[in-house]
Design a protein around this nucleic acid. Structure first.
Lengths: 211, 211
DNA sequence: TAGATTGTTAATCGATTAACAATC
DNA sequence: TAGATTGTTAATCGATTAACAATC
């Protein structure tokens, strides 16, 4: 019997990279891929990849490699991409509208089910075939359309109150683009996507390279 | 003399969080903040914060705390946010347009200087007061406007060729939103902002919470 | 001075790398 | 069988946490 292994956060972060690379590989018509080649395509060591995958099971064939389609299905299952999550975006400004049109929602099996805003001029408009509802109707809409995940794309000062409303309405996960720490009950999952972190990071490294 | 310390990647990722929290603190009129309080606001332990800051110098006063304005200036300098980086966005689709309107460029001291696209219908349009140029003119424009950073917001299959063009034109850094591994010469800095990683992460954790 | 809080060193914990046995 | 490649264990490396001396 396989021993229970602790999965590192870093491993979970790499799985989506494996997934997207397998998709490309599959489109190229390749049926088998080695950790060596997968690693080359991603700039990750083969040992790292084998270790990551092995913590979830034995997906490969010794002496052969990994069957692309099968591994894709396995990683998809691990990531829960086969769960058909329903998504709502809150805050239909530039970023919110871009997210509403985000093609990876479809590629990864998520469904855009609702949009919310507080501005009466925006409410009622259609973005990517979905009508924008007023944030005050969040309770009803989340229940009716069985929304699992709320995306926060409102200005930072409103992020916490929007999060509270989403939680009360019944979402299970929050994808937060507002540059602000958000507090949620323990049973809610939250992932922060503060773009300024990446940008500052770039600035840091450029500064040091140019010295 | 202070010993040379290796700075962890994780530390660099936290500095922007400190920076943005200090800004809010400053706006509230607070002049001094302790690692204890900064930690509470961010969900990070005070020890971690002190350790992070100490690797760059002695910014605090024992028994007192950190002077908000001074610490902000110090972190800003470390991150190179005082360098007035000039930015160009390539690929003016939904995401590219949203990034062109990204307010944190201004907050963090970056200047949006140019936009590029390959679509003749998009070239010539104005987004956030900047005219969209054709990607074929990238060499000239990057030189003329002294662009340091290129933001890639084109579909994945075009990401590598756009990166090559940006590098040839003379940028020092690339902020890549395309879900594709990009290869650049060693003297070029690159930060990947693959949104599907965060989204998959959320899916993974929700799946496990709902079991 | 007494209380508070930093900066730093040591201890622990976690993640990656290296090596290799297992086996297709 | 011989060559290739996985899965796993051990060794190393890096990051966080705990503890406390220094000092404002």
């Amino acid at each position: 019997m396989r021993q229970k292994v602790v999965i590192s956060k870093a491993t979970i972060d790499r799985l989506p990279l494996y997934f997207r690379t397998l998709r490309v590989t599959k489109e190229e018509g390749r049926e088998i891929i080695s950790s060596e080649e997968l690693g080359r395509r991603l700039g990750i060591t083969p040992e790292q990849i084998r270790k990551d995958l092995a913590s979830f099971g034995q997906f490969g064939k010794k002496g052969v490699g990994y069957y692309v389609h099968e591994l894709m299905r396995n990683i998809g299952e691990i990531l829960g991409l086969d769960n058909n999550w329903n998504i709502a975006v809150v805050g239909i400004g530039h970023l919110g509208a871009a997210l509403a049109n985000y093609q990876n929602f479809i590629t990864l099996g998520f469904n855009l089910m609702a949009l919310f805003d507080a501005d009466e001029d925006v409410v009622g408009t259609i973005v990517n075939k979905v009508k924008v509802d007023h944030i005050n109707d969040v309770n009803q809409v989340v229940k009716e359309r069985n929304i699992h995940i709320g995306v926060i794309a409102v200005p930072a000062p409103f992020a916490q109150e929007v999060a509270d409303k989403l939680v009360t309405a019944g979402v299970t996960g929050i994808w937060n683009f507002a540059p602000r720490k958000i507090v949620v009950p323990e049973h809610i999952c939250i992932v922060n996507e503060d773009l300024s972190v990446g940008l500052s990071n770039l600035s840091y490294h450029i500064t040091r390279k140019l010295l």
